[in-house]
Simulated scan of single mutants.
Amino acid sequence: MPCSSCAPLIDPFARPITYLRVSVTDRCDFRCVYCMAEEMTFLPRKDLLTLEELTRLCNAFTDLGVRKLRITGGEPLVRRDVMAFFRNMGERLGNGLDELTLTTNGSQLRRYARELAACGVKRVNVSIDTLDERKFLDVTRRGRLAQVLDGIDAAQEAGLAVKINAVALKGFNDDEIVSMAEWCAARGMDLTFIEVMPMGDLGNEDRLDQYMPVSDVRARLAQRWRLTDIPLRTGGPARYVRVEETGARIGFITPLTHNFCEGCNRVRVTCTGTLYMCLGQDDAADLRAPLRAHPDDDAPLIDEIRRAIARKPKGHDFDYSRREDWGQVARHMSVTGG
């Protein structure tokens, strides 16, 4: 039951915490080059929060004022029985929670789209960086573009709004900026371009060589269309424009060229119950310990959440201006679900 006496979460800089991103698994059926190493060692099952523990944790955050819950991974839809968790959280919609959504690679949407809609999910973010089959295989290392496109079809057939997330990668998809925008506009999908972030083991990829400021992306789009800034906010860090000729919306997430920390309203929890107060900092809190030590009492969990939020930093340290991966954090992007 909601805790009516629980004061909402406010960080040291007077920012309300209303958005929680929760990873339900570190596993994925892709190995995207900016997200995972090609050869990953995944966690043993005992280290992961159970679906019941995930439900308790998310309910506690909802009682503390979180209004938007985004489910992430790895790939969230490869978690066994994950729809039971979606059903549980769907029951909080209109009862503390305003929105339940997920970020996915799209590979499992044909299987789960209708069930997600039945749980109250209204929209999904699908990560797709290229519409070229060969390049898609290169960037995902094992994904099939046709399967993802079919998943997008299934999502739209189920009535889900789809937003495409594309990481801007110089020398890889910079020649597809306009064509991806045209494709999304034709299908009625929003599109967001994201700057690549310095996280994890780079392997054979050099983030400095990959990095393309989103300002360059916008400039290329502006050569083709008239772009008008709009005040749309979806709970996250994207800033949006409207393409006047098509009516389409395009978002830009700029953690490096123009960080969005001043309005940060979100925190992230990993599939092991580790709470990260900032994507670009290593400080964290262990929420699994109070969950398991006190299975029938949420007070210790709530106390630990409050202590963690009390040390949420003002912002991250991502910076490529020195021509080095300044502010890089060691964990893979897949650990915190982006």
Rank of each mutant, 00 (worst) to 15 (best):
T104L: 05
L301N: 04
P198K: 06
G120H: 05
A222P: 06
F260D: 10
L208T: 10
R123T: 01
V126H: 02
F85N: 08
R15D: 11
D206E: 11
V167P: 04
A219D: 12
K135Y: 00
H316I: 05
L64Y: 02
I309S: 04
F172D: 00
T192Y: 00
T101P: 04
A248R: 03
N165V: 00
M333W: 10
E52S: 14
R226H: 15
R144M: 03
M189F: 03
H316L: 01
M199A: 04
F30I: 00
H316E: 07
A185R: 03
D283F: 07
G188T: 08
N204I: 03
C261V: 08
K314S: 13
L9W: 12
R249K: 13
P237K: 01
L291W: 06
A161V: 12
D325A: 14
A60N: 02
Q147W: 02
R56Y: 05
R31Q: 09
K68D: 02
A186M: 09
H258Y: 06
R144K: 14
R21E: 08
C3P: 00
R15N: 12
T140D: 10
Y240N: 12
G96H: 06
R110K: 14
A185M: 01
P295G: 13
R268N: 03
P12M: 12
P290A: 14
L69D: 06
E262P: 00
N88L: 08
Q108L: 13
Y211R: 03
E324H: 04
A330M: 08
R110I: 05
A185Y: 02
C35D: 05
G247L: 11
G315P: 01
V162T: 08
D319C: 07
G143I: 05
A185F: 03
R56C: 05
A185E: 01
T130E: 01
L9N: 07
L227V: 14
E75T: 05
V66I: 13
A284P: 00
L97F: 08
G96D: 11
D174G: 04
L102H: 03
R322F: 12
Y19H: 14
R311N: 07
G171P: 05
L100V: 09
L232S: 10
C271D: 08
V269D: 03
A14K: 13
D63H: 13
L160A: 11
Y240Q: 01
D81K: 14
P44E: 11
S215Q: 14
R268I: 11
R144C: 01
M36Y: 12
L64F: 02
T336K: 00
A293S: 15
L137E: 13
F86N: 07
I194W: 01
A166L: 03
N165P: 02
T55E: 15
G120S: 09
E244K: 05
C261G: 05
L208M: 15
K46G: 08
G338V: 07
F260H: 07
M212F: 09
P213H: 06
L20R: 09
S334R: 02
A168Y: 00
I164P: 03
R292W: 11
P290V: 12
N165M: 00
